[in-house]
């Protein structure tokens, strides 16, 4: 008693076969199993049901389960591929795969577009961009006048909205992001290259080979 075998852990809700996940992603089987260590930690932090709830995601990101953040909300919603309010293990791995250093830039550009298309209209609209600028100002406790915010949004639209129709479509975003790769820096997590180093215990115990 008191010792939970890896077989029992694997029956957690939302668990998915690492072999399948490794086939679909850049991760090896060992790396998927190391990611399971991280997943397990986050998904048992508040509600111990083996699924990542929004409060648990916020706790892992901010060390505070009540910290509201527009962008964390967006990331959570996009990771929640089944749209059932929780992130399952397979969703966690497939979504983090986009942030892998070896994942093609095109996938990162597409993910960032969905992230910024707050209302899912297929465009990044002026109002959405303004809402996001206001959110980051609020988060960083920076105070700018409404005029200054309008100027930032206008300037950005001047650069990105090539056909000047007042919204940024996917092709425009692709061109803009390709010209400004620094905008996608947050779409790559160097940690994912060394995930088995960060969580080595499972690799030693799992016996999985690639």
């Amino acid at each position: 008693m008191g010792c939970v075998s890896s077989k029992q852990l694997k029956r957690d809700k939302g668990y998915e076969d690492p072999n399948i996940l490794a086939k679909e992603t850049t991760f090896s089987v060992n790396e998927v199993e190391a990611l399971f260590q991280l997943y397990k930690k986050i998904s048992h932090s508040i509600i111990k049901d083996g699924l990542i709830h929004k409060e648990e995601f916020q706790l892992a990101l901010f060390r505070n389960s009540n910290q509201k953040n527009l962008f964390a909300d967006r990331i959570f919603d996009l990771f929640d591929l089944k749209r059932n309010g929780v992130i399952e293990f397979g969703e966690f791995v497939r979504s983090l795969n986009i942030f892998h250093p070896d994942t093609p830039m095109a996938e990162k550009i597409a993910f960032a577009f969905r992230l910024y298309d707050l209302r899912g209209t297929g465009f990044i609209e002026r109002e959405e961009l303004k809402e996001m600028v206001l959110a980051i100002l609020n988060e960083s406790e920076l105070i700018l006048s409404d005029d200054a915010v309008e100027q930032i949004v206008d300037q950005t639209f001047k650069q990105a909205d090539m056909n000047e129709d007042g919204k940024i479509d996917f092709e425009e975003w692709k061109a803009f992001a390709s010209k400004n790769p620094a905008l996608l820096k947050n779409m790559t997590l160097p940690y994912l290259k060394d995930i088995t180093m960060a969580f080595p215990s499972f690799v030693l115990n799992s016996g999985a080979s690639d």
Binding site: A72, I136, S140
Partner: peptide, 25 residues
């Protein structure tokens, strides 16, 4: 200077995007 700021560069700095925090022990 607001006119030289890029909105996407600003918002990409949000802590909400800092998924590296998930890996901090």
């Amino acid at each position: 200077r607001p006119e030289s700021m890029n909105a996407f560069a600003l918002i990409s700095r949000s802590q909400g995007f800092n998924l590296g925090n998930l890996f901090e022990k």
